[in-house]
Amino acid sequence: MNPLVTIRGLCVDAATSAGTAHLLRGVDLDIGRGRIVGVVGESGSGKTTLASALLRLLPANISRISGEIRFDGEDLLTLDSAAMSALRGTRIAMIFQDPMTALNPLFTIGTHLVDVQQRGTAGLSRRDALTRAEAMLTTVGIPDPKRRLSAYPHQLSGGMRQRVMIAMALLVEPDLLLADEPTTALDATVEAQIVQLLSDLRKDFAGSILFISHHLGLVAELCDDLCVMYAGTVVETGPVAEVLAQPKHPYTAALLACEIDDGDTGRLTSIAGEVPSALSTPPGCVFASRCSHRVPLCDHAPPPFEQLGTRGTACLRHRDLAS
């Protein structure tokens, strides 16, 4: 079965007062049907830009966008804006880190939930939409859903608002759900509830999810596939368990070593150096300056992204390093 989303050579540049910033430097990524793809990366890795590019909601200072994003065969980058906005909120939905950015403070939860359905299904009556909304609130674990329908966003806690966002996303039954750090702003015990909810909902949700997080552990628990990003590039992809058990890219390995896990002792690990500025263009591999396996060849040209079965990596030396 062909993947739902195929991204090839996606480049995004932004114009800043200090020069051109390379936010994405040629990204290749597949999102399989019904899969949860976790995107991890540190600040400046471009993971949020990737999500914005999928929705084609990029900031105004974007100076160049090239490559292709095939969504169910159609290139999103060539769609006209009317066709694109028809996709948003129907076939592609998004959950944000801060739900308040996506909820209108002047509308009730019920209105939000009805609106998203009526956008997707023309002619749906408000009464039917409200009935479905109430059922969905129960599904996402909101107690007393009838009363919540007439509540305003500010009357709910952060965890409840995030549940409402998930309910909104599920009501439209999108083919692709983008979740950008959906649990980062929540308290630990509430985060655990949302993570539990997301993994429970997998049975009912047929679409694919792109789950963006800086938290490797969370991605490990929740996702099927992993995509590791660094400085605007994808350095490694593959099934989560395989990648984490045997990373092919030195950055993935280094990132794993930095995770503080139960039972570890002694000094903590870190990666020396800094992420290259988005304004600069390293001649070779973007990770070379911090890589402990660097050889002269690494600085000659950016390494190609090699696909080997289900695994993919952009490292010249992945074969040497495997042994």
Binding site: A188, T189, E191, A192, Q193, V195, Q196, H215, L216, G217, L218, A220, E221, A241, L244, L256, E259, D261, D262, G263
Partner: peptide, 17 residues
Amino acid sequence: STHPSVDPAKRRERIVL
């Protein structure tokens, strides 16, 4: 129990309050 670990062997059973 809420702390997700990358290592499945070290994962605690999550207690969801």
